[in-house]
Design a protein around this nucleic acid. Structure first.
Lengths: 231, 231
DNA sequence: GCAAAAGTGTTAGACGTACACCCATGC
DNA sequence: GCATGGGTGTACGTCTAACACTTTTGC
């Protein structure tokens, strides 16, 4: 059959907003753009969609290429299509965000991109509309994390409750009462207490926990409330 | 500057999922596809993106073309990019959903599409992946409406609380206790009571209300809970 | 023993849910 | 006067937010 007539094909790119958490700060992984225009400026990791690839597949490929990681939390954020967002050629960008365990990331995997982690508040100016995308991603993560247990994706397999609390505090940029937090999070039933303690951040030590993956999966779709309502 | 080399441009379409509410049922507006392939089959209203148009702009144009309406609630749902979703040519679809006041829609505006409203449960099979899109849109609307007052967009300027309640019942496909509903909705402060009553559905009559648009706008971003949590 | 972080306990009020009852009106 | 939907009232349990205190341990 003949193709659609009189239509203008455009390029479609997939960009990935990659978040990590080092135990102290929420961080963003960005690269130095390898091609013109704006070569060597900070940019999200992205690429054009392949001929036989769907959007999710392209996002996974791009993420794998930069980080070497499979099976990470990946969610489509939004498509961006300002006609002039890329000065060279009309390009629609479908943006994904990923939450990864930063400890699994190794700089050695693929150094050709000169990737670097920045604390969220210290991310440099990014090319095109990438900074806007990051802002939108943060909004969405705050929204999602208030209702669903997604922030566990940023933590290592074993983590402590104070670590988890600090992560929530980073994400919402506001202090949380630790007594209420502990109660809420243990009441959720999502955590399995380990016998070992993490002694690195206090004399007393904090118990490690693992995520109960079955319960996590089961509860994921239910509307939970992990943070208090903004005032 | 030269263009990006070795990349395959593809077509980008915008499809609109248009919801309306006639006082009894939640309905979907679909058209008979005018072009091959699958000509004359039921389809979402859509179109290819214009050269100097952004995605939101394209969605607005498409909506205007079919319904004659400006200024309607329109939200980007998701991008769909299965390589074979359109059998003729690789086409990425960026999908929007719209909530309109069905009374403002007039069949006369543009009859060339043979548009028709279907009750949500009676929507025929749609072309390509359009049925999947509609399902995703309903999920998102349920999600959004549980937290934000978006369903007002489906109602006329003046409406009664029983009407509003029925709308929520349609959207969540489950009965709501009218006494609790009334209290919750009036406590939100979003409604302004009118002096007239609607006598069409009961002897006693139900007071009309208007939406307090200022409060609506102010509260829109706060996480409200309009329905009870699913069990 | 002291500092510092981890963790348990308590309480008052807000909120959600369930349910009973009265109101207004046309027939 | 009675059927029908519209609307108010109440009571109880659960969740949340605010705040005080004890525990553990290295120095």
């Amino acid at each position: 059959m003949t193709k659609y007539i009189n239509q203008n094909p455009v390029l479609v790119a997939v960009d990935c907003i990659i978040f990590g958490y080092d135990g102290e700060h929420l961080k963003l992984l960005v690269i130095k753009r390898a091609i013109e225009p704006v070569k060597d400026q900070w940019s999200l990791m992205g690429g054009f969609i392949g001929t036989n690839e769907d959007l999710d597949g392209a996002a996974k490929r791009i993420l794998l290429e930069l980080t070497g990681l499979h099976d990470v939390y990946l969610e489509q954020l939004q498509a961006y299509g300002q006609p002039d967002r890329d000065p060279i050629e009309r390009t629609i960008s479908v943006v994904y965000f990923a939450l990864i365990d930063i400890n699994k990331y190794s700089k050695q995997i693929n150094d050709q991109y000169h990737a670097e982690w920045f604390e969220l508040k210290k991310v440099p100016e990014l090319i095109f509309d990438h900074s806007i995308m990051v802002k939108a991603a943060m909004d969405k993560i705050r929204y999602q994390a208030a209702l669903h247990p997604i922030l566990f994706e940023l933590l290592p397999k074993k983590f402590t409750i104070p670590q988890l609390q600090n992560l929530y505090e980073q994400v919402y940029d506001s202090p949380i009462d630790n007594r209420n937090f502990i109660r809420k999070i243990t009441a959720s039933g999502l955590l399995i207490k380990q016998t070992e303690k993490d002694k690195s951040s206090s004399r007393r030590g904090a118990f490690y926990f693992k995520l109960d993956k079955l319960k996590h999966k089961a509860q994921f779709q239910s509307f939970l409330s992990f943070i208090s309502k903004p005032k």
